[in-house]
Computed example of a mutant assay.
Amino acid sequence: MAIKATIHKAQIQIADMDRNVYGEHNLTIARQPSETDERMMIRILAFALNVPADDLRGRLELSKGLADADEPELWQRDLTGDILHWIDLGQPDERRLLKAHGRAERVSVYGYAYSTPIWWANIESKLTRAPRLSVWQIPAEQSQSLAKLAQRSMQLQVTVQDGGIYVSTAEDSLEINPIALKRPQE
């Protein structure tokens, strides 16, 4: 018998001064047995960094993630079902990213392992025809510290200011400084 997903709940207060996005969001996360605390918390962080200011063009949602290889970790779809923003985590291969680029208005990747710079160096030249792709590296030490905040029920405050991200709970806080490996072309 297969092990079922564990349900986690996160109440997130977001104050993103860089994008003028503020609000409170309640997430229910179905954490698959193969998913680590680190990956789950990076999913939550990616949500906080990409949630739109309003739902006029659709909501940002957690997808089935690891349970469905054809879906990203998060996505924003409009009311017709078209994908506005495809968000992946880790180190997806270039075929997956090019396919996503063909389906979505924007594609973002958040890498969080020590090997992210090596992965990126190997596929960067293959993604030159993906102008709407952005790739971010969350330093591994910072993503591992973020993983320590994981609980079955969480209350998180995420503040973004001048490119720095501050995540805090009632007991702890940390700073995350993502590194842009690729930004979308204007």
Rank of each mutant, 00 (worst) to 15 (best):
H85Q: 09
H25D: 11
Y112W: 02
A180G: 06
R31Q: 13
S125W: 03
P92C: 02
A2D: 10
A150G: 03
V158K: 03
D172N: 13
Q137A: 11
M154T: 06
I118H: 01
S168A: 08
L56W: 08
N177F: 10
G164A: 12
Q11F: 02
S153M: 00
S145E: 15
R19P: 12
M1P: 15
L66N: 00
L146S: 03
E175C: 11
G90K: 03
M154E: 02
T128C: 11
T116H: 00
L89G: 07
D88L: 02
R95G: 04
S108D: 07
A53S: 15
W136N: 09
G23I: 13
N50M: 09
P33F: 09
A2K: 13
G81V: 10
A104G: 05
W119L: 02
K9Y: 11
D70S: 15
R31G: 03
L181F: 12
E105G: 12
S145F: 14
S115D: 15
I87D: 04
A170N: 08
K4G: 15
D37L: 01
W75D: 03
R183M: 10
Q91A: 12
E171H: 12
P52F: 10
T128N: 05
S34F: 02
E171Q: 14
I44C: 04
D54Q: 13
K148C: 06
Q157G: 07
W120Q: 02
Q144I: 03
I138T: 02
E171A: 07
L89E: 00
